[in-house]
């Protein structure tokens, strides 16, 4: 039988099966998940607000300046919960409620560093730390660069 080197198009069979699977596959509990994310995400932000106020009042600084230590504190909490093995268990329920706030950023950094610890400090912890968080930084910086450029060239 001669080999057909052409890339095969999607067959009717594949299309039909994919559609059946898409229709029949169990769906996430949309409402419950969204509510849990809402409540946990809201609570995380309230805790963040508490630390912002705490630093603002005790250090007598502006709310904007107090944001920095508050973010660092939240990152510390996210890191600690990850190290203790609690974060992933909470996130099973909270979903985006823990992932979207800065706690999720901390978790992605810490879990990667922790996971690859066995490969040593250079290849493992150092090299793999931004395995997941890297794309956030990359896209954030690329966005900010072009917006900054537009400002510098056209608006200022």
């Amino acid at each position: 039988m001669p080999r057909d080197p052409k890339k095969k198009p999607i067959t009717v069979d594949q299309k039909r099966y994919s559609e059946i699977v898409r229709d029949l596959a169990p769906k996430p509990l949309y409402l419950k998940n969204a509510l849990l994310a809402f409540v946990t995400g809201g609570l995380v932000c309230m805790i963040g607000q508490f630390f912002t106020d705490l630093y603002r009042i005790t250090l007598n600084i502006s709310p904007k300046e107090a944001g920095n230590p508050a973010v660092a504190t939240m990152i510390f909490i996210g890191a600690l919960l990850t190290g203790l093995g609690i974060f992933d268990k909470l996130a099973r329920y909270a979903g985006a409620g823990l992932a979207v706030p800065v706690t999720g950023f901390a978790n992605s950094v810490v879990s990667s560093a922790l996971e690859f610890k066995r490969e040593g400090l250079i290849f493992g912890v150092g090299g793999k730390m931004f395995l997941l968080a890297g794309s956030v930084i990359t896209f954030g910086v690329v966005t900010a660069f072009f917006i900054g450029l537009i400002y510098a060239l056209f608006i200022l």
């Binding site: 996430p28 990850t82 974060f87 992933d88 999720g104």
Partner: peptide, 11 residues
């Protein structure tokens, strides 16, 4: 993902 990464599983 890393085992400690907090990710919600699909059904």
């Amino acid at each position: 993902y890393p085992t400690e990464y907090g990710v919600q599983r699909k059904p």
